[in-house]
């Protein structure tokens, strides 16, 4: 976390652009700009700014936005539910497509299902999610008017963005599920399970599936993090007032505290997801459970 906060702090100060100029406008005089810089604290030496900021971050204080004047934490928390819901919906969609299709592809290898799955994953991986988003908008919102064109507030607004996000992730997850399942089905315990007279359904969906899910869950967790990143683009396409748009405008306006807070926050979410995945993993995999 410390490394991430240091990097983001340096990067946004290296890139050209001065928040004071943004706030003051084009016609502002030199003295106005200096006054604004003094108010924002950007006239101090970089090291001082850095120490100030790190000190605040350690107390979970992300400072206030230079542009709107509201606390960064408040801004993030306002926008978080939407983005988080979007990412979670995307994850649920990708899991619900990938795991059943991946398992069936593995169990009935070289069947029509398997080819369907392969075609789906090829296409899913090839098309960018923002393009899919635009196409979905055109077809289902403009032509058929099944879903609202833009705006937020209800779950219905999130269906199309979640699908656009989920499809690409589902494609990756499907490949992984299929490979994991095929590997498990070739293991000896599957022969033993058959030798006990268990039905093929039990052998596949009880014995092999539980073991195959281990790598799938790890990757699905990491995917959730990627989806938070992907949400930034998708929110643009669907004009959703989520975290992505918040951070993007922060970057446009060189709102240093907002960018810094945002990145640290996203990094925190990433670590939190990884932690949760590890916990989940140990529940599913008795071998790594600490006795």
């Amino acid at each position: 976390m410390l490394i991430i906060s240091t990097i983001v702090f340096l990067v946004i100060r290296v890139i050209p652009g001065d928040p004071a100029l943004v706030i003051a406008g084009i016609d502002a005089s030199e003295s106005d700009i200096k006054a604004i810089r003094a108010k924002l604290g950007t006239d101090k030496p970089i090291l001082t700014q850095y120490v100030d900021w790190i000190w605040k971050v350690m107390r979970f204080d992300f400072d206030t936005s230079m542009i709107s004047g509201q606390p960064v934490t408040q801004l993030i928390l306002e926008r978080l539910p939407l983005t988080l819901t979007l990412a979670l919906m995307g994850l649920v969609i990708s899991i619900f497509i990938a795991i059943p299709l991946g398992v069936v592809s593995a169990v009935k290898r070289w069947s029509a299902w398997d080819y369907l799955g392969m075609i789906f994953s090829q296409i899913g991986m090839a098309i960018p999610s923002f393009w899919l988003g635009i196409i979905l908008l055109l077809l289902l919102s403009v032509k058929i008017k099944l879903f609202p064109l833009f705006g937020g507030g209800t779950l219905k607004h999130l269906v199309l963005p979640a699908i656009s996000l989920g499809i690409a992730r589902a494609a990756v997850l499907l490949r992984l599920t299929r490979a994991a399942m095929i590997e498990e089905l070739s293991k000896e315990y599957v022969v033993a399970a058959r030798s006990k007279g268990l039905t093929e359904r039990m052998v596949n969906y009880k014995h092999a599936l539980k073991n195959a899910l281990l790598p799938v869950i790890t990757i699905a967790g990491i995917q959730l993090g990627y989806m938070l990143g992907g949400a930034i683009i998708i929110e643009q396409v669907f004009s959703l007032p989520g975290l992505g748009r918040l951070f993007l405008f922060g970057v446009y306006q060189r709102d240093f505290p907002l960018i810094q807070g945002g990145v640290v926050f996203v990094a925190f979410i990433f670590s939190f997801i990884n932690f949760t995945v590890d916990i989940l993993y140990s529940v599913l995999n008795p071998r790594i459970r600490i006795s």
Binding site: K187, E188, Y189, V191, A192, A193, S195, H207, K210, N211, L284, N285, P286, R287
Partner: peptide
């Protein structure tokens, strides 16, 4: 039926 290597023929997850 019983097998040569019980470690491999028992399901590790159950």
């Amino acid at each position: 039926m019983i097998f040569q290597e019980p470690a491999k023929y028992l399901n590790p997850a159950y």
